[in-house]
């Protein structure tokens, strides 16, 4: 079903119409691509060429120098060891946060659709609203709590020799992202399981399966698409987060990628190395771009699921 059926106008104007339509579409495609294109070509140029040449020109002698410098040498704040450490910081934070929030979301969605109780709607509504709050409204209390956890971790360390993860900025960010991602993951799974036939659950109940058996044997094997959607959505969101990262891990060698990139680019000391900046930016964007290229369909579905229908 497509609206295109109606736009077939008769006769000679049709060709002209098509040309205008394709022209506009290609023009916009160009506009959307230019920033990425400029980033790419700049990252392969030398600083001399950047200073003297045209922004849009292809590099005369493409070199990976800037990429190597961005990865291993460029200065983030006072440390000059490239962004690689921060890249791994992000990975170490994103993977557990995505997994935990997704699994909890699927369990929540399961309960909220198939094991309803009085007030399930209110519970869901409250969790859903949590998706939309400006995180500025929880930033300060969370900082206080994380500070307290840090002190507790320090005490623990002096007592036992290990802080057990308390006060570790990566652990902190995992906690924060799990908590503030729960609303989204619950929403995704709740909507997906809402459409999942309840008769299957009933049949399994009659067949003697328990709460977790039904979840593991009936629901999980049929949830692959929504898991992909949720994982991608959470991955993109958490990888791209800047606010929490800068508030709770905003300095030192614990910064996630986004904060480190911002520090590289907005540094006020030394010569600005645009090619290195661009390479660093592309490296920072690479994981999410890769996910987008590989699983674009699910990426879009996730965005829509987050937008349409509560």
């Amino acid at each position: 079903m497509s609206a295109a059926a109606t736009t077939r106008t008769g006769g000679g104007s049709s060709l002209a119409n098509r040309i205008v339509i394709y022209g506009l579409l290609l023009l916009f495609a160009l506009v959307y691509l230019i920033p990425l294109f400029v980033m790419l070509v700049t990252s392969f140029k030398s600083m001399d060429e950047i200073q003297s040449g045209n922004m849009l020109a292809l590099p005369q002698s493409p070199s990976f120098d800037a990429w190597a410098r961005a990865w291993g040498e460029t200065c983030v704040g006072l440390t000059c060891a490239g962004i690689k450490g921060y890249f791994w910081n992000s990975i170490k934070m994103v993977v557990p946060a995505v997994l935990i929030s997704t699994i909890l979301g699927s369990l929540n969605g399961y309960v909220l659709t198939k094991w309803r109780f009085r007030g399930h709607k209110l519970v869901f509504g409250l969790m859903l609203f949590a998706c939309f709050i400006p995180f500025q409204a929880v930033l300060l209390p969370m900082a206080t709590i994380l500070g307290a956890l840090g002190r507790f971790g320090a005490d623990l360390e002096s007592a036992t020799g290990w802080n057990w993860g308390f006060g570790n900025p990566t652990v902190n960010l995992v906690i924060v992202h799990v908590i503030y991602g729960l609303g989204f993951t619950t929403l995704f799974f709740r909507n997906y399981y809402e459409a999942f036939p309840t008769e299957l659950i009933r049949a399994a109940q009659v067949d003697g399966a328990s709460f977790f058996q039904i979840f593991r044997r009936i629901l999980l094997p049929n949830s692959a698409p929504i898991f992909v959607v949720t994982v991608i959505y959470q991955f993109t969101n958490i990888w791209n987060d800047f606010l929490f990262a800068s508030a709770y891990a905003g300095s030192g060698d614990v910064m996630p990628m986004t904060v480190a990139l911002n520090n590289v680019v907005n540094t006020s000391t030394g010569v600005v190395e645009y090619n290195v900046n661009m390479a660093a930016a592309i490296i920072a964007a690479l994981p999410t771009l890769l996910v987008y290229v590989v699983a674009g369909r699910y990426f879009v579905r996730g965005l829509m699921a987050g937008a349409v229908k509560g």
């Binding site: 691509l33 791209n240 964007a285 879009v300």
Partner: peptide, 16 residues
Amino acid sequence: IYLYPMALSFIVTGVA
């Protein structure tokens, strides 16, 4: 092509 910027962080978008 129209949609890929959505996969980028605001930070990367800002830098670009």
